[in-house]
């Protein structure tokens, strides 16, 4: 939709740079907010600020310009091209897992292992590690850039013992499987957390320029393959799971295909009351008691 001429004129009076922020922000208030953040970041050089404003005008995501995104309780996640920017829904999911499920589980003295599939920038694994320093957490991703950035983020936030492995989640090699599930009696990890690509390819025309043009399509587009893959492969190796999703269809795929005698599966709604996740547990496992509280 076009921005009305009056809004452009009004914004010009406040700051001559403000009209350039409008195409992405839409409202003067939001544009002003973003301009303040940019000004604070590029305090010293005006030429860099102008360049940044022009980049924003062309649709580059703010997080790629500022290179960071706050996440979790006290984390700063670095953002680079070719790696998906962490979303607030994911932040909420991490908060939910930490406060509702893992809070009491941390007290048990046995060693807890969590796998983060499609780790991306490492935001989920780091947010879990931040609250539960004793847990063993492993992240898996297919992209080399993601593994590199996730390790950088780990060092930036002064966290240790988070391991990132490069590997294909859809077709895991036997060596990867051995690394992930060793040191366990039943060869099962306590939890699998994942934020797989779930945006439907048919919605591509409606997407915003900043997502369409700048963010990696590998981390965005997918439908059922990751959920089918979970049912067929990964569900045999875990006691509980939490997957982010976007469509009803994806939830049904998990719920219908898992054995209802062994598994309990639930929906998770986000702050805007939209279906955003699916979680579940094995009924006879240790971690199942944590879900009932």
């Amino acid at each position: 939709m076009r921005i009305s001429y009056r809004i452009i004129q009004n914004s010009k009076k406040i700051d001559p740079l403000l009209p350039f922020m409008l195409p992405q922000c839409r409202t003067i208030q939001h544009a002003n907010q973003e301009l303040i953040w940019l000004k604070n970041h590029f305090q010293n050089s005006k030429s860099k600020l102008l360049k940044a404003v022009l980049q924003r005008y062309n649709g580059k995501p703010l997080q790629y310009i500022l290179e960071t995104q706050p996440f979790g309780d006290d984390l700063t996640i670095k953002c680079k091209l070719n790696v998906l920017i962490p979303r607030w829904e994911t932040d909420d999911i991490c908060n939910y897992i930490n406060t509702k499920i893992l809070k009491n589980y941390a007290r048990t003295d046995k060693k807890v292992k969590i796998i983060d599939l499609c780790s991306g920038s490492g935001c989920v694994s780091l947010a879990l590690k931040e609250k539960n320093p004793t847990f063993e957490i492993v992240g898996v991703d297919i992209s080399d850039d993601c593994i590199q950035l996730a390790t950088e983020n780990k060092i930036l936030n002064h966290l240790q013992d988070v391991q990132y492995i490069q590997g294909n989640v859809l077709r895991p090699s036997s060596s990867l499987m051995n690394v992930l599930t060793s040191e366990k009696d039943a060869k099962r990890v306590d939890m699998i957390v994942s934020n797989p690509p779930y945006v439907l390819h048919s919605t591509l025309p409606q997407l915003n320029v900043s997502v369409k043009k700048y963010e990696p399509s590998l981390a965005l587009f997918g439908n059922l393959q990751f959920y089918e893959n979970f049912v067929n492969v990964w569900s045999n190796h875990c006691d509980s799971f939490f997957y982010e999703l976007g469509e009803e269809e994806q939830y049904l795929c998990v719920q219908n295909n898992l054995d209802s005698n062994v598994w309990s599966v639930f929906k998770w709604m986000d702050g805007n009351d939209k279906l955003r996740g699916v979680y579940g547990y094995r009924k006879n496992s240790n971690i199942s008691k944590m879900f009932n509280i």
């Binding site: 979303r87 607030w88 919605t203 409606q206 900043s210 997502v211 981390a219 976007g246 805007n272």
Partner: peptide, 19 residues
């Protein structure tokens, strides 16, 4: 309350900068 405003798909499809 946490207001994220706006309708639409949400999730990975939209990149919001403000909370």
């Amino acid at each position: 309350k946490f207001l994220y405003g706006g309708s639409g798909a949400g999730g990975q499809a939209i990149n919001r900068t403000a909370s």
